[in-house]
Design a protein around this nucleic acid. Sequence first.
DNA 1: CTTAATTGCGCAATGG
DNA 2: TCCATTGCGCAATTAA
Lengths: 114, 114
Amino acid sequence: MAPKRGKAKVAPETESGDDSDEYRKKRDRNNLAVKRSRIKSKQKTQETVNRVTQLKSENTVLEEKVKNLTKELGFLKELFLAHAGSAGDASKFEGIDLQKLLSDPSDGASTSNS
Amino acid sequence: MAPKRGKAKVAPETESGDDSDEYRKKRDRNNLAVKRSRIKSKQKTQETVNRVTQLKSENTVLEEKVKNLTKELGFLKELFLAHAGSAGDASKFEGIDLQKLLSDPSDGASTSNS
DNA sequence: CTTAATTGCGCAATGG
DNA sequence: TCCATTGCGCAATTAA
């Protein structure tokens, strides 16, 4: 539908003069409702924007955690393997499958969750 | 400023008839601009909403990672301490400060990052 | 049916 | 001067 010019004078055609009071009251009420609705809408939008900021922040923290945990884990694994290897006794850990244990399950490839 | 009734007929008061053409052209162009602007605005809002969804998702993945890493780390630490303790030789790891190493630096309490 | 909330739209003021 | 943005009112539609 193109631009659409003329628009006014299409409503209070039925009656006028007497019910004009009623008409205005209705219009005023609606205008207030519109105002309320738009304020509410803007608030919601703003909250969404804030939520993005908050989530970004949480994400940064979590990424830092993952980084640190991964680093520490890598360190322990190295130490683990070095010890088991140099001492020539991998059996000290009672047949634990180090290969599997020391691979990296941290990328959520598992289906087994508690 | 309260409700504010009457509003129409306050603009093309200067001239009329001749420049009416120009007036309408202007109005039409502005109406298009308004439409464009509002579409753009809605798109931006929608993108923000989508961003929230995306970030929530990323967050879930990261939390899962932290959970898995923490679990694995805990397991390795236990194994580590058990071995060092039962065998009575904590020195096998060349004086490494297990207390410090095995505490948990994953909660970003440190100021020293590589 | 009555009222409040939403929504699309045009007008005008204002920003750039 | 032109276009973009924004506050505001009107009316149609939707939801209570």
